[in-house]
């Protein structure tokens, strides 16, 4: 089997004024692989996510994406239209704040259905059936399909955002602190849901988090970032159980029983 990476980044560099936000970052994401980027606030992990997903243009380096057709596209040269098309079909983006990823005034069914309609679904009954199925999968009572997310709890909103993102079966999902604003008990449920869906659908995920426990639960591979650089990377359990870099040791030591 000739397997190739979905996303390949080489030598990414980006400065905000004098501050290096990214400094020589390279990484690959393979099909079905969950990669977590951990590091403290300001380490450049969110910037890296934005550069990899084409939202931000780097000063140096390149990001290549291999589409379902097998052709490789440079993420920063493909043009906004192609990037948007990618964003609503083959890619997904789960935001920390569900308000950034949902239409708060549109019903739960409409939120899930939007991505289907954006890629051409035109059968109301089919869209509704699919939305119902996805609400069930993310453990939202399908009877609430016509309620708006404003009437949902934070955890439900985040689960709805995940349903909306995954409904088009993307191959690559970017997640930015998906459990960020939630209570601990709600976090556990969400993490487990993500873990299950990712495994079932064989998704590749790039997860940005400062939650080491979440990274351990979800990620196959871990990248530790500090001051715009990847200081250590490898198998999740090895990086966390046998950290080599001083900063990783500090990070792991700071966590309560990860």
């Amino acid at each position: 089997m000739m397997e190739t990476p979905l996303l390949e980044a080489h030598g990414l560099g980006l400065r905000f004024g004098t501050i290096p936000a990214l400094d020589g970052v390279s990484l690959e994401i393979w099909p079905g692989e969950v990669v977590a980027i951990v590091g403290e606030s300001g380490s450049g992990k969110t910037t890296l996510l934005r550069v990899l997903s084409g939202l931000l243009r780097p000063d140096a380096g390149s990001v290549a994406y291999r589409g379902p057709d097998g052709a490789t596209h440079s993420v920063h040269d493909m043009g906004e239209a192609a990037l948007r098309r990618l964003m609503r079909s083959d890619w997904g983006f789960v935001h920390q704040n569900p308000r950034d990823g949902l239409r708060m005034g549109v019903s739960a069914g409409g939120n899930v259905g939007e991505r289907l309609m954006a890629v051409g679904a035109r059968h109301y009954g089919g869209i509704r059936a699919e939305a119902t199925e996805w609400l069930r999968r993310v453990e939202i009572d399908p009877a609430r399909i016509d309620d708006t997310p404003q009437q949902f709890s934070g955890g439900m909103q985040q689960r709805l955002q995940i349903a909306r993102t995954l409904v088009t079966r993307p191959r690559l999902v970017f997640m930015d602190e998906p459990t960020g604003g939630l209570d601990v008990s709600v976090q556990a449920r969400l993490l487990d849901l993500i873990r299950e869906l990712v495994a079932d659908l064989g998704l590749a995920v790039l997860l940005v988090t400062h939650d080491i426990a979440a990274a351990r639960l979800l990620a196959h591979r871990l990248l530790v970032m500090r001051q715009g650089r990847v200081v250590e990377q490898g198998l999740t359990d090895r990086v966390l159980d046998d950290p080599q870099h001083e900063y990783t040791q500090l990070l792991v030591a700071s966590v309560l029983a990860a």
Partner: peptide, 9 residues
């Protein structure tokens, strides 16, 4: 054991 399993490098 952990080295063999790759849990430790």
């Amino acid at each position: 054991m952990r080295c063999l399993y790759g849990n430790y490098g």
